[in-house]
């Protein structure tokens, strides 16, 4: 099956490992991810300034995907997925908006929105199109029962009507279901749906960093070994900003991408998934019980 693959700004140059893991998994299930040089910014950053600029930018990407003759445009960023889904739905349903945007597109790039495709997040796409049974059959490596705290991200869940109510916005489960197939243990933790604060990073850095700090503490308190995300910006917030001196915590929470866990279970190695060897070992190699580990540290000084 061929689908248009919408990377988005952050995945393209900040989270190569995410991109790599997604491409490996897609290949495994015979999904051909088609890149396009006609894709531009999804439009989300223009939303605060001007509604119709926001629509036009998103529509430009939808049009580029429509021209590829595919049924789906698959994105790996929560915000890109939400933006493209929202605009795709709006332009399909609202004739007035569609005419207005088509006038802009005709005059600027000489093209028109037709409304022939659907937008999906990669995780939703494999959940629905490949299905849990097929994914389970393809698993070759049973992973260790690592405690994984899933972070869904706001724009993966809400508003649910934008995503055809495929996921429960109150008790989300799709990432948990996918991860549970591999042998890891998805854990629940306090305030699980807390926002990463990425959207206001540039407006009020202190507030968004406090939001990151709270999340990391909750994940740590639930004794999770890693935090798994499926949005590049949530990863930037929890991964990169974890090093910020304003976050005065005395522990580290490794942040990985949900598809990397799936990739390990599907038989790919750490390098193919752009994973740190140390983190991959946690999932693959026999682990010593925490007690004996501390004894060993003591014995070797």
């Amino acid at each position: 099956m061929k689908v248009a693959y919408f990377l988005g700004c952050n995945v393209a140059l900040r989270t190569y490992e995410y991109d790599a893991a997604v491409r490996r998994i897609a290949e495994k299930f015979g999904i051909e991810l088609m890149d396009s040089k006609d894709f531009v910014c999804c439009g989300y950053p223009a939303a605060p300034q001007d509604h119709s600029t926001f629509l036009a930018l998103a529509a430009q990407n939808l049009v580029a995907a429509e021209e590829m003759g595919v049924d789906y445009i698959v994105s790996v960023c929560n915000s890109c997925t939400a933006t493209l889904s929202k605009v795709n739905k709006l332009l399909k349903e609202n004739e007035k908006e569609r005419e207005h945007i088509n006038k802009i597109l005709k005059n600027s790039i000489g093209k028109e929105f037709k409304g022939t495709l659907e937008v999906r997040h990669f995780l939703r796409f494999i959940y629905e199109e490949v299905g849990l049974d097929e994914i389970k059959k393809a698993i070759t490596n049973k992973l260790n029962p690592v405690r994984v705290a899933p972070h869904y991200g706001c724009h993966y869940l809400k508003p649910p009507e934008v995503f055809d109510f495929f996921e429960d916005p109150i008790v989300p489960h799709t990432a948990d279901d996918l991860m549970a197939l591999t042998g890891v243990v998805p854990v629940k933790y306090e305030n699980m749906k807390q926002c990463c604060g990425g959207a206001i990073l540039a407006v009020d850095e202190d507030t968004s960093i406090s939001m990151v700090r709270e999340k990391l503490i909750h994940v740590h308190e639930a004794q999770a070994d890693v935090l798994a995300v499926h949005c590049p910006f949530c990863n930037v917030m929890y991964g990169e900003y974890q090093k910020d001196p304003r976050i005065d915590i005395d522990f580290k929470v490794p942040v990985i991408f949900t598809p990397q866990i799936l990739g390990l279970a599907l038989g790919f190695d750490a390098k193919q998934l752009g994973m740190k060897k140390k983190v991959a070992k946690l999932f693959l190699e026999p682990q010593e019980a925490p007690e004996s580990k501390s004894e060993e540290v003591g014995a070797h000084g």
């Binding site: 990377l7 991109d19 790599a20 036009a56 802009i104 790039i109």
Partner: peptide, 29 residues
Amino acid sequence: ENRMREKYGLPKINQSPEKVKKVLEKEKI
């Protein structure tokens, strides 16, 4: 960035700002 992408076995990316510019100009924002 494109060299890094190559290291991870990922295809190169070419940005196309002209198209965004065209839309932004039409919008007069």
